[in-house]
Simulated scan of single mutants.
Amino acid sequence: MAKRVQLLVGTNKGIFIYSSTVERKSWSLQGPFLPGWEAYSVLGATRFGTKLYAGTSHAAYGATIRVSSNGGETWEQITDSPSYKEESGFSLNRIWQLVQGPASEPETLFAGVEEAGLFVSRDSGQTWKELDGLTKHPSRPEWFPGAGGMCLHTIIMDPGNSKRMWVGISAVGVFRTLDGGLSWKPCNNGLNRIPTGQPDESVGYCVHKMVLDPENADVLYMQEHSGVFKSIDGGDSWLPIEEGLTLREGDMPFGFPIAISQTGDLFLIPLESSELRSMRDGKLLVYRMARGEHSWKPIGDVLPEEERHVSVLRDAMTVDALEPYGLYFGTTSGEVFCSLDRGENWEQLPGQLSRILTVKTMIMED
């Protein structure tokens, strides 16, 4: 049975889908689907039939989850989408992340939202329940938003332990559960706290994105507001891994996305600074730390003949599960790029989209 690769691209004006064979030499583009809607999260789920899920939001109509069973041609709005009870005092502004649950629970999905909270569905996304052990955490009164809002943007499952998972919240920090979401522990030791003015030092950390090592579920990597970090104890402590990222005086290891391949290669796209949030000197430059190495190297000048004063957002960089793997990212100016040689060389995919918020991959079988 032939396989096909799809890139699911969420923008602030709908969803676009790129398709290719496993050789990934030529790409077709479809969309926009759900035009006019922000799509901060897109998920291609294949465990219970091929379905596409999207976390959409609109200034006039609010946030909701939509699902398509026919490749995006038509979408159903989930009536019982994640929502807070009125007495909670929280508003649900966006759905930042959608992920599948453990392999042993094929119909389970999780949704991370803004204002920060975590919801679970046990019936393929038709109904949702708040995991209020997180929103009722004792530190909750001191949670503080980042520039993009107080969003739960990262959800990581331990593939070997269905009860253990991590979430990343801006600008609050990392939380870990060992009991499937009933209780949560802040895991921010070693990170650089931002000046929120709140006294609880267990929170107040601006996590931008976090990934799990594919070979060791105690090892996590993070792009944080003030640097790049690694944990080797499941998040109990963090150490900086920034060698090679500050190449000029005054440069900071600031950026949003971090991605990891199935072989353990890490990728970053550093920006000028927290204030400017644009490419250093206009160079669209990708950095890699290969498995077994201890420093970052600039390995892919994506458009060496052109300047690109753009950004790449936290969820707009990803890696597929093929061999050799494909590495992809989308920019705030709507360009999508692909590398098939570990970030050394890049191809720009067809089309100029709107502001890209998320990029995900899905492997299809025809």
Rank of each mutant, 00 (worst) to 15 (best):
Q352R: 15
R248D: 12
H208W: 03
S91W: 14
W37A: 10
Q262A: 11
I17C: 11
L303E: 12
I65P: 12
Q198F: 08
S226H: 13
V42P: 01
G264Q: 08
V310I: 13
S162T: 08
L220S: 09
G190V: 06
S88H: 03
P199V: 11
I241D: 03
G31D: 08
Q100D: 14
L357A: 10
G234K: 03
H208F: 11
I95N: 03
F229A: 01
T332C: 07
G44P: 10
A59S: 14
I232C: 07
T135H: 00
E115L: 06
H309I: 00
K136G: 04
S104L: 05
D315I: 00
C151I: 07
V336I: 15
Q126C: 00
R277L: 07
H294S: 15
Y325L: 09
G31M: 09
L276C: 00
G125N: 07
G146L: 04
N345E: 07
G234F: 02
S183C: 05
S26R: 15
L276A: 10
Y287I: 13
L239E: 15
F90A: 01
A103I: 07
L212R: 14
E305P: 00
T46I: 09
N216D: 15
P350N: 05
F337D: 04
G168A: 01
E293W: 00
G334M: 06
G71Y: 08
V302R: 10
G133T: 09
F48D: 11
P35A: 07
V22G: 01
N192A: 11
K230D: 10
E323V: 14
D320K: 06
H137F: 07
G71L: 09
E73N: 13
V319M: 09
I232Y: 01
L134W: 04
E23G: 06
M252W: 03
S81T: 14
L134S: 04
P82S: 08
S91E: 15
T358M: 10
L52G: 07
F329I: 06
M364R: 14
G133M: 12
E87L: 06
I15Q: 01
K297P: 03
K230A: 13
G197K: 04
S68G: 02
Y40S: 13
A63M: 05
M157H: 14
N188E: 04
K360T: 08
S91L: 13
K163L: 13
A217G: 06
G180P: 06
Q30M: 12
F110L: 09
P195I: 06
S19T: 11
L239V: 15
V211G: 10
